[in-house]
């Protein structure tokens, strides 16, 4: 089949040559240029093949696999970091809880201490107040007793004075008795 087309092409080329001389024709069928084109094509293909198989393809393949490796590594590292972050968060939470408990303990202690001091102070103040109140009571009682006494005297004097003013002879004993009687009542 291939040889057939070749023969046909040959015939066509001879015709093409005839046509080319008259100014028209298909340059593709000008067989005199074939050896030249085939030679340069083979040179080109060999050069491209060598460049690709020696330099370009291994390099690009290397880049691609390196990138795949980098991505895998980065993913692993990210996973690692994530775990670490979770650990750190847990540690932080634990420390926070501890600190909170400590703070509560200190606060409770302080409160208890203050309470003790407060109780003491209140007791002392109560005692003092009680003592002062008792003293005052006593003073008031004394004053009141003094006052009562004075009232009795004043009342007797006044009564005697009133009796004498009314023109009667005051009987001291009777006045005293009456006043005492009234004051009891």
């Amino acid at each position: 089949m291939a040889t057939e087309t070749h023969d046909a092409g040959q015939a066509a080329a001879e015709m093409a040559h005839g046509a080319a001389e008259s100014g028209a024709g298909m340059p593709q069928l000008d067989f005199s240029t074939y050896p030249n084109q085939v030679f340069w094509l083979v040179v080109t293909l060999v050069v491209i093949y060598l460049i690709l198989s020696r330099v370009a393809l291994p390099r690009i393949g290397g880049i691609l696999s390196e990138r795949a490796g980098t991505i895998t590594n980065d993913l692993a590292a990210a996973e690692d970091l994530k775990v670490k972050a979770a650990e750190a968060e847990e540690a932080y939470n634990q420390a926070l809880a501890e600190a909170r408990a400590e703070a509560q303990r200190i606060a409770a202690e302080a409160r208890a201490e203050i309470q003790v001091g407060l109780d003491d102070a209140i007791a002392r103040a109560d005692a003092e107040i009680a003592a002062k109140a008792a003293e005052s009571e006593k003073a008031i009682a004394e004053i009141r007793a003094g006052a009562l006494e004075s009232i009795e005297i004043v009342a007797k004097d006044t009564a005697a004075e009133i009796v004498s003013a009314l023109g009667f002879k005051s009987d001291e004993a009777a006045v005293t008795g009456a006043v005492t009687e009234r004051m009891k009542g």
Binding site: A12, M15, A16, A19, A24, G25, M26, L29
Partner: peptide, 8 residues
């Protein structure tokens, strides 16, 4: 067609 145009 090309052959008929240019090569015949």
């Amino acid at each position: 067609a090309l052959l008929l145009m240019f090569a015949v």
